[in-house]
Design a protein around this nucleic acid. Structure first.
Lengths: 167, 167
DNA sequence: CTAAAAAATTTTAAGCTTGAAATAATTATG
DNA sequence: CATAATTATTTCAAGCTTAAAATTTTTTAG
């Protein structure tokens, strides 16, 4: 019963105009996921062999470096789009290794502020330069026009995915 | 020595033309990673509440559904860009749940072919329809022009990342 | 034929990740 | 003030993931 579609089949889906578009969107997602994984695998390799660290650790340290006065655990996990328990685990190991420090708030004793140690800052900054160079190499094909276009499309997508208003 | 760039500084980097481009590429990567995670989180939620399964399981089953005569463990892990040990773990659980079967080759006793069971086929096909609809909704903003453009850029990126020749 | 090399898979240890439950502290409500 | 609801974080069990080592089998070279 797949063939013989009647023309009077009303296409009243809110989002999908016809099946062909839906298929193209699915294929795009698969392609996008594949490229993301390839890049992640390259970055993982770079971090492992060159700097004896991992992607999740790098992500946490990058976030803490951008927000030098620290973040709460909740802010950290929301920024990185990971679960709260996951944040705890990664931060635990970074604390163990002396790269990150937990500061317990005096005014609200539930709250913890996570912050890079001086050693963490030093290590991250050394890393960040080479990380950026690695990304630059992997994305070397993309010129300003490509970047404009991708940025616009990804912005629109993120708008939808975060409920349109903020993010 | 960063300022006062002489015009005769030959830009003979293969990939990077100037710092501004490098920064834009880095920002694009961060944006792309964010959108990918948002989509993955939505899909994870959809699979969990609606179908009591997970993203890695879905990925394996989708691959096996596309290649109905089965794949070896090596082919499977390479297709999904995951490690061989990871593939073993996910397949183990799918076998335990009766959705996937391992067939040991007679001619090469190292080789294992992994294939969906009839129950696996049934379950996946029910899932796939709703999965596609979910993607279609999440990517509803993208029209044919967007899809063309994204496909081209992602193709170029993948070319670089897989060594240009094949993939 | 035999030993070495290569190939396919599994096992292992460590770390990553999630969602849910538990803990602890603060704020809101009567 | 008491207690209910909320907020912040950690703990927990299960599953995911990797890289490296181990196992088993096949292929290659002598």
């Amino acid at each position: 019963m797949l063939e013989g579609k009647q023309p009077d089949e009303k296409q009243d889906f809110a989002s999908s105009d016809d099946g062909a578009l839906a298929v193209r969107r699915l294929k795009l997602w698969i392609r996008m996921l594949g490229v993301t994984r390839l890049v992640e695998n390259q970055l993982r390799e770079f971090l492992r062999v060159g700097h004896d660290t991992t992607l999740p650790r790098f992500d946490v340290m990058a976030t803490l470096h951008r927000r030098r006065d620290g973040l709460s655990m909740t802010e950290l996990s929301r920024t990185l789009l990971i679960s709260n328990g996951n944040a705890t685990a990664v931060v635990d190991r970074l604390v163990r290794d002396g790269l990150v420090r937990r500061i317990h708030s005096d005014t609200d004793r539930r709250r913890v502020t996570v912050i890079l140690t001086p050693e963490g800052v030093t290590q991250f900054e050394a890393l960040a330069v080479r990380h950026r160079a690695t990304i630059d190499r992997l994305f070397a094909q993309l010129d300003d026009e490509d970047l404009d276009m991708m940025r616009d499309v990804l912005r629109r997508l993120r708008g939808d995915l975060t409920g349109e208003s903020g993010g």
